[in-house]
């Protein structure tokens, strides 16, 4: 484990805790994309199926996998719960969440069938999850750019998530040079994902420069 990887994982962890804390303390779901959060559940469930096999990596690895599955499910449950407790806010959230995720799902499935390490169920689903993760934030970014305003904590969330992916890139350089390890699918999808976030940073700077409503990350 190198520092880039550790800080990458920590910022990923932080992004999730920020989101949960935001929903719970402010008691608001405004500006959150239900679709993006639903995609993360699917991503973690399809990627970490190896928890069911005997490919144990480390205690750290297992705990983190369980955390990501559990916390993504918890977020979806929190959002779903507002359907009963705050029907108007829930309806507004769903109405604003207009991105067509079927293209992301279909595209990721095609890419997973074309590019995988082995034509087996586990490897195809793993590949599907990395392709899907590379674009899963798009419904959230789409919502953000459409509304032109966002709660600063939503921005904190996206920023921490973008930071996580950005830190994984120097981690891969490190692993290539120090450990001789190179996972080409992880690297390619990771770069795609970071490019998607660069769009967020572009929108962010544009809004800030033109005096828009985005808060500082």
């Amino acid at each position: 484990m190198n520092l880039f990887r550790i800080f990458g994982d920590l910022s990923h962890l932080a992004s999730i805790l920020i989101l949960i804390r935001t929903i719970q303390t402010t008691d608001t779901i405004d500006g959150i994309s239900f679709k993006t959060q639903g995609l993360y559940v699917l991503i973690f469930l399809t990627r970490y199926l190896d928890l069911l096999t005997f490919s144990y990596v480390s205690f750290y690895n297992t705990i983190m996998k369980l955390f990501f599955i559990g916390s993504s499910l918890y977020i979806v449950i929190l959002l779903q719960r507002s359907r009963k407790t705050k029907p108007i806010a829930y309806k507004e959230m769903i109405m604003a969440d207009t991105f067509k995720v079927q293209y992301l799902l279909g595209g990721s499935l095609v890419m997973a069938l074309l590019f995988n390490y082995k034509f087996s169920l586990l490897e195809i689903l793993w590949s599907f999850s990395v392709w899907l993760e590379s674009v899963a934030i798009l419904p959230q970014l789409f919502m953000l750019s459409k509304s032109g305003k966002a709660k600063s904590l939503t921005i904190h969330y996206i920023f921490a998530l973008g930071l996580y992916r950005t830190l994984y890139i120097p981690n891969w350089f490190w692993r290539y040079w120090v450990e001789g390890k190179f996972d080409k699918l992880a690297v390619v999808t990771g770069i795609v994902q970071t490019l998607v976030y660069s769009d967020f940073f572009y929108v962010y700077y544009k809004k800030v420069l033109t005096g828009g409503g985005l808060g500082l990350p």
Binding site: R5, D9, H12, R47, D50, S55, V57, S58, N61, M64, K65, F68, Y117, K118, E123, W126, Y168, N171, K181, D183, A186
Partner: peptide, 10 residues
Amino acid sequence: STSAPSHDEL
């Protein structure tokens, strides 16, 4: 290419 690398990242 060789067999699938172990997916030890998150």
